[in-house]
Computed example of a mutant assay.
Amino acid sequence: MEMKGMMGGLYKISEWIMRLFVINITWILCSAPYILLLGPVFTTATESHGIALILSSIVAPFTLFPATAAMFAVARKWVMGETDVPLLRTFFRGYKENYKQSMIGGIVFVLLLGILIADMKIYWTELQSLKFVSYLFIGLLILISVSLINFFSMVVHYHMKTRHLLRNAVLLTIGRPIRTLSTIVMCGVIIFISFSSPKLMFIIPFFSGSLIAVIAFWNFYSIYLKLQLQAEKAAEAAAEAEAEKVKDESGENETQVVLTKGPEGQDSSK
Rank of each mutant, 00 (worst) to 15 (best):
D267W: 07
R76Q: 12
S102T: 08
I28C: 09
L225D: 07
E244W: 04
L211N: 10
K261Q: 15
L165R: 02
I51R: 14
M71T: 13
T162G: 01
G81R: 07
T26D: 11
G5M: 08
A235I: 03
F220H: 10
Y123W: 01
T68C: 13
G209V: 07
A45D: 15
L37Q: 08
L200F: 09
L227A: 09
M80A: 15
G50L: 15
I190S: 07
E254L: 15
V59Q: 07
S14L: 14
G105R: 04
V146N: 04
V155T: 08
K121F: 06
K233Y: 01
N150P: 03
F65L: 15
I138D: 07
H159R: 12
P33Q: 03
S134N: 02
G262M: 09
F192R: 11
Q228W: 05
M3Y: 02
Q256D: 15
I13K: 01
M120Y: 01
N253C: 04
Y95D: 04
C30T: 14
D248S: 08
L229C: 04
S196H: 05
I191K: 10
S129Y: 00
Q128E: 04
A243R: 11
E236N: 09
R179I: 05
T183I: 12
L10D: 07
L38R: 09
F62D: 05
F137K: 02
R19D: 01
E15N: 14
E47C: 09
C30Q: 05
W78F: 12
I54F: 15
T255C: 02
E82L: 11
S268I: 15
V156G: 02
S268R: 13
Y221I: 06
S48E: 05
M160L: 13
F132K: 04
A235K: 14
E2C: 00
L55I: 07
L141C: 13
N98V: 03
S102M: 02
L127G: 00
L112E: 03
I28D: 05
F92S: 10
L38Y: 11
L113C: 08
A60Q: 10
T44L: 14
E97L: 14
A239V: 00
L37G: 10
W124S: 12
F92N: 09
T180P: 07
Y221P: 12
M201A: 14
V258W: 05
E254A: 13
V74L: 03
S48K: 12
I17F: 13
K261Y: 00
S14D: 03
V156N: 01
L38V: 05
V146R: 03
I212M: 15
K96G: 06
S31Q: 08
G262Q: 02
E244K: 03
V79D: 13
L130D: 07
K96Y: 08
K261E: 14
I178G: 11
M186K: 14
A70V: 09
A75K: 05
Y224P: 10
L10Q: 04
T125H: 09
T173V: 01
S31G: 04
M201D: 08
F151V: 02
L165D: 04
F91E: 13
I203M: 12
I58F: 11
F202M: 05
L36A: 11
H164K: 13
M71Y: 00
K96T: 08
T162A: 01
E236F: 01
D119F: 00
V189Y: 02
T46L: 13
N24H: 01
A239H: 06
I58Q: 10
S14P: 11
A69C: 11
G9W: 00
F91N: 10
L112Q: 05
G8Y: 00
L55Q: 15
P66V: 05
I144N: 02
C187N: 14
